[in-house]
Nucleic acid binder design. Structure first.
Lengths: 193, 193
DNA sequence: GTGGTTTAATAACACTCGTTATGAAAACAT
DNA sequence: ATGTTTTCATAACGAGTGTTATTAAACCAC
């Protein structure tokens, strides 16, 4: 039985999540991470492992704690409500915190060094997972007559994800909620009935 | 009268552009840049200045040489043709080269370190410039009756840019041209008339 | 009070980063 | 053949990167 851990692991992970959300995986240094977490480097290593492991934990937390509106959306009665719920909640999340806007799934790594490739692939897979869920939901909508026979669930899912990604980029660039909502409105106006 | 420069400055800049396109500003190291350009570091410095200056030159070249379909699009007769031309050409460009997909305007810096902030702002401004051009074009379309009175040129421009950014993210993630075209088709499906 | 275990802080490691100093090579004028 | 200028390659600089070794501190069982 040894020394108790002196810092709140949960809060430290939250702090690291915010740094990665703001600066991306490669843009975030241990100087940033330790300052935000209020913990020295060896302590971060002891609690979370290396930088990549820390990022993966932060990403998992991001999906669990911040994207909880997605399973809710998938249970809504119509495909248009699903899309609307996701779009407007994403806009809210992407603009909620002044010091880290956008989406971790996009900010993490878009283009990076060779060393960042495993993390970039992890992000691609996480986004693909979400897209699969959407596609399946839209297939169900089609089967139920909520979407017309001519509708293409895969294209709709890809379209919705594209708009979400674009909104994340724009939020990170400082676009207003009003503008982002107008983008979402326009996207929904194309929704098949 | 001294020694002649031994490398092709034009080709070296192209090579650097490709590295930045693939790895982003921070993900690209001088090891990458010198290997791709076939030139030693002091020679790159001599010809282009520091890393940030090199990136800015690469970005200017990207806009001049690769985005030349945009002024063409802006002269098309209808707003829908403008949007379609840009979307399909962007998809072509974002998927043309197997070893650097996506768009430099997005891959450059989305989220980065404090040191990358000037570059990130330059990219935001470049994208904003393009959005302004679109907005003005759509305002003209509205004045000419090509877009209905209820249409909002600013929202349409922001929407089009969002889809373009989303497509760039998806192209960089390895999505097929077919999928990306379906996204564009969906975006255009109810373009206001 | 001692021993064993776990954690924390300091410092350093090995390496890479972007940048530059220095000497040599290649050019041209004389 | 020499002098001047420009460019190139090598090497190193100063700083920062992610990671870890070492010692001390804090805990608990006995």
């Amino acid at each position: 039985m040894g020394r108790h851990r002196e810092f709140d692991v949960d809060k430290a992970l939250d702090a690291a999540l915010c740094v990665f959300w703001r600066k991306g995986y490669e843009g975030a240094s241990y100087a940033d991470l330790t300052e935000a977490a209020g913990v020295e480097r060896p302590a971060l290593y002891s609690a979370f492992g290396n930088k990549e492991a820390l990022f993966r934990l932060a990403l998992a937390r991001y999906y669990e704690r911040y994207l909880d509106y997605i399973p809710v959306a998938l249970e809504l009665p119509t495909s248009r409500e699903v899309a609307a719920h996701i779009l407007y909640n994403a806009i809210d999340l992407n603009t909620r915190y002044a010091d880290h806007t956008g989406c971790l799934g996009i900010n993490g790594v878009l283009a990076g060094s060779d060393e960042a490739e495993p993390v970039r692939q992890a992000l691609i897979e996480a986004r693909a997972e979400g897209e699969l869920q959407l596609r399946e939901r839209f297939e169900r909508a089609k089967a139920e007559g909520d979407l017309p026979e001519t509708a293409k669930p895969d294209a709709l899912a890809a379209f919705l994800l594209a708009v979400l990604h674009g909104i994340a980029v724009q939020a990170k660039a400082g676009f207003s909620r009003e503008t982002l909502r107008a983008v979402a409105d326009q996207a929904l106006s194309t929704w098949p009935r």
